[in-house]
Amino acid sequence: MNAVEVSELTVRFDSFTAVDRITFAVGVGEIFGFLGANGAGKTTTIRVLTGLLSPTEGRVRVAGRSFADGARTIKSRVGYMSQRFTLYDDLTVSENLAFTSGLRKIPPAVSAERIQRLLRFVGFNHSPSALVRDLPGGLKQDVSLVAALLHDPDIVFLDEPTAGVSPAARSKFWALIRGLAREGKTIFVTTHHMDEAEECGRIALMRAGRIIALDSPAELKAQSFPDPLLEIEWTAGAPAGWRESLLERGAASVVPYGLHHHVMVNNRAAWDRFVGEHTGRLTVRTIAPSLEDVFIRLVEGADR
């Protein structure tokens, strides 16, 4: 059985369609990534899957439960970490966690043992009696994760868990996510960061409420870039109108990347002629496409 099954899910707010007939499934133990710009519908989808928002249409099954069983039965089976900062600033770490245990009905003895174990797991090295407002951002995220894991859920939803934390804290947080997946938990994570998306078993790309691609990162790259991807740099200044002429002569896409451009070629002969015309002014390297390339290509494809 899948951990999450979504079929034809639609969420509308008045006339605005935030999520538009999406269908997908997440297997048990998977790290499933949700990628997309702000407003693409990632958070809305997660809120439905955590029982925080009722779907307008479509069927949702999370951990074997649906909305027909009541949103509360879903809530008791999943862990959720919001992209907003949701701890109480004026309470201590242990008070915040005790509050969550109380709402989750975790017996005190079990709760005390778990809090200790989870704080150790996330590497929390502060005093648990420190006020949350006095903690650095990364540590607050760690405590939020502990709060989401207190009831030992099989599925954990993380909505942009690393937004606004330092790169070091980010990579540490992803080590935790991998650790949870090794324990057999299903991880459902949204992110802006392409390097984080690479860590996922499969990723779904959302745009304007729809899923426009869903596969493993390697498979997405292979599908989006059947032809080699080249990185070019104009070493002696770019001639005017080169992009347009290149696109006319057989490049599928020309995308600026800092000082370079990524070019996807679909007419090899025309490309070779182009390179020949600009010998000495142009360096060309064959590169492996990153997820960012995939993302841009898919979004452009969807716009076209």
């Binding site: 955590t50 029982g51 925080l52 509360r72 039965t73 809530k75 008791s76 959720y80 919001s82 907003r84 900062f85 949701t86 701890l87 109480y88 600033d89 969550t100 709402l103 989750r104 939020s144 709060a147 989401a148």
Partner: peptide, 14 residues
């Protein structure tokens, strides 16, 4: 406003 309601409601509280 602070967002803590979201965590509160993500538990089975009534």
């Amino acid at each position: 406003e602070t967002g803590s309601m979201e965590r509160l409601l993500s538990t089975p509280v009534r």
